[in-house]
């Protein structure tokens, strides 16, 4: 069997701090971009069995519009920001200042696709910048690619791209918008097993420094 992922308390605190800050920044950037407040849920850092990952965005067959970014530099990872169809059409409406499209429609025109890609870009960059600030690691996102398909197909393809798959994956997950609100999304950071070890080691070092533990 593969090794389980083990994190010390200090490393977990470090990870939470970096991720919470990143999500906060992402929410601010996104709110500024769409011109209205987009609530962000408290991010969860989860170590989950790989088989459960495809179901984490509302079920493996849920149709989502997902902005996908590959991450290179000191770590290799994937980031996926996905919205259910209704939310995606609403977001496009806000961004392009037009009435939202048919919430069931799978069609997104060129402008809508670029708008959603840009949402992915801004949101993911905010989180990555925070992660970079807290770890000192060089983290470079690719340009975003927009995919409209089954959530499970997108998430499992991203996992497979990371190479040899262990039994567990670390997922940083946050939900956009509160219940009943306009926009429901999920943000995933899927690091490769080596990237995960790199992030954890660097966070551990930073988390022990006095400035950070004084908060």
């Amino acid at each position: 069997m593969s090794k389980s992922i083990v994190i010390t308390r200090a490393q977990y605190r470090g990870a939470r701090k970096a991720v919470s800050e990143g999500i906060l920044r992402a929410g601010q950037s996104l709110s500024t971009m769409v011109g209205r407040e987009i609530g962000m849920g408290t991010p969860a850092i989860k170590v989950v069995p790989v088989r459960d990952v495809p179901g984490l965005a509302g079920g493996p067959e849920t149709t989502v519009a997902a902005a996908y970014l590959g991450i290179s530099g000191d770590i290799s990872a994937h980031m996926i920001l996905c919205f259910d169809l209704r939310s995606a059409h609403k977001l496009v409406g806000y961004l392009l200042e037009k009435a939202p499209g048919d919430p069931e429609s799978l069609e997104f025109d060129f402008m809508s696709r670029s708008a959603l890609s840009e949402v992915g870009n801004v949101t993911c960059s905010s989180l990555l910048n925070a992660l970079s600030d807290h770890t000192g690691l060089a983290i470079r996102p690719s340009i975003p690619v927009l995919v409209v398909d089954m959530a499970g197909a997108i998430l499992s393809a991203a996992l497979a791209e990371l190479g040899p798959v262990g039994d567990e994956a670390m997922v940083i997950e946050t939900v956009f918008g509160q219940e009943g609100e306009a926009v429901n999304g999920h943000l995933f950071l899927l690091p490769s097993p080596e990237a995960l070890a790199t992030i954890i080691n660097h966070l551990g070092a930073r988390a022990k420094c006095p400035i950070e533990s004084s908060r």
Partner: peptide
């Protein structure tokens, strides 16, 4: 065996599908 995420990562791309 589809290729959903056509994106080069670290300069090369594996078509896993």
């Amino acid at each position: 065996g589809a290729q959903l995420l056509a994106l080069p990562l670290n300069g090369h791309h594996w078509d896993i599908g």
